[in-house]
């Protein structure tokens, strides 16, 4: 554990909680892509199956349980509790175009051709693109609530901090996991455009709206 990984995990946790609180307090999931949230629930489920087989640390297990629990709670709020506020018409990204290629890639490129390992690889690849339906929704409506942009910023920050974590681990532990690193870099790049808008608009007190 190093400082980048810890702050990365906490930033990830902050993102998840910000989103849950936004939906709960406003009693609305307007502007939130349910499809992205389903993808994240699939990501956590397929990656954290090792909860049942491998114990790493109390911290590790607790965070996994919290991530999975929050992911399902978010999906429940969007599709059940506050379904009436879900903006399905704008959430029109075709997820099969992500899930199918990612599944194929996980079978082809992995560390070990075993069930658990392929699921882990699938979750890594899927996470790198899971935010696309959300970014697509924002580009379609041309705007995002400020609280939604804070959520996205924390999520992007988590990925960026994990890259610093990998640099750290490479230098001090000789550790590197090419699959995680490549997918993590791809994921971070997807946020770059958003980071730019966040810094130039949201941090200056303006609402995030895209030119028509």
């Amino acid at each position: 554990m190093n400082i980048f990984r810890l702050t990365g995990d906490l930033s990830h946790l902050a993102a998840i909680i910000i989103l849950l609180l936004k939906i709960w307090k406003s009693r609305s999931c307007a502007g939130i892509s349910g499809k992205s949230q389903i993808l994240f629930a699939i990501v956590f489920t397929t990656r954290y199956l090792d909860l049942l087989s491998t114990f790493i640390s109390l911290y590790n297990s607790c965070m996994k349980v919290i991530y999975i629990g929050c992911a399902y709670a978010t999906v429940y709020m969007i599709y059940m509790k506050f379904r009436a506020t879900y903006d399905g018409n704008h959430d029109s990204f075709r997820v099969e175009f992500l899930v199918v290629p990612v599944g194929g890639l996980a079978v082809l490129i992995n560390h070990d051709f075993s069930f658990m390992e392929i699921l882990w690889t699938f979750s890594i690849y899927l996470e790198s693109v899971a935010i696309l339906p959300q970014l697509f929704m924002i580009s379609k409506t041309g705007e995002a609530e400020t609280i939604t942009t804070h959520y996205l910023f924390c999520l992007g920050l988590y990925r960026a901090l994990y890259i610093f974590n990998w640099v750290w681990r490479f230098y001090f532990e000789g550790f590197f996991d090419l699959i995680a690193i490549v997918a993590g870099v791809v994921q971070t790049i997807l946020y770059c455009d958003f980071f730019y808008l966040y810094v130039t608009k949201v941090l200056k007190g303006k609402k995030l709206s895209l030119p028509a």
Binding site: R5, K64, H111, W120
Partner: peptide
């Protein structure tokens, strides 16, 4: 051999 690669990150 459940976890041959050893994924310790979240």
């Amino acid at each position: 051999s459940q976890d041959p690669v050893g994924h310790d990150e979240l």
